[in-house]
Amino acid sequence: MSIYVDLAPRRLRLRLSPQTLRVLDAFLEAPKDWRYGYDISRNTGLKSGTLYPILMRLAERELLETSWENSEPGKPPRHLYRLTPNGLRVAREHGVRLATGRVARIVLGGVKN
């Protein structure tokens, strides 16, 4: 299974590391919802130094959209994240491939997870 994704039409290649896949997986749990950075960090177990470069790369490649939430008056806004339709497509494609690969490994090799 290739760990690179071609992002047509921009011809950009995104390396999908295991950590990036974990982030995409976390977004797939509720694809329409906006998520906070700290919540994603807790869900994925990734530290901020790993998580934010991934979010930055996804946003640069237009797989992630960002927004600011002014929830508490007098406090700075919070940054929110959600996958774009293109990001959802990539995440779902890799989610399926990952699941297929996992099942194949279990069936053929008897390896658990």
């Binding site: 700290y38 960090s41 901020s48 130094g49 998580l51 934010y52 470069p53 919070r78």
Partner: peptide, 25 residues
């Protein structure tokens, strides 16, 4: 964005780790 999330980190030690990781990022 990272600085704002620091307000929601529960423990002091986790906040230190968050801030250091964010600085690296």
């Amino acid at each position: 964005a990272m600085l704002r999330e620091l307000d929601f980190v529960e423990s002091d030690w986790a906040a230190v780790l968050w801030a250091l990781g964010s600085t690296t990022a």
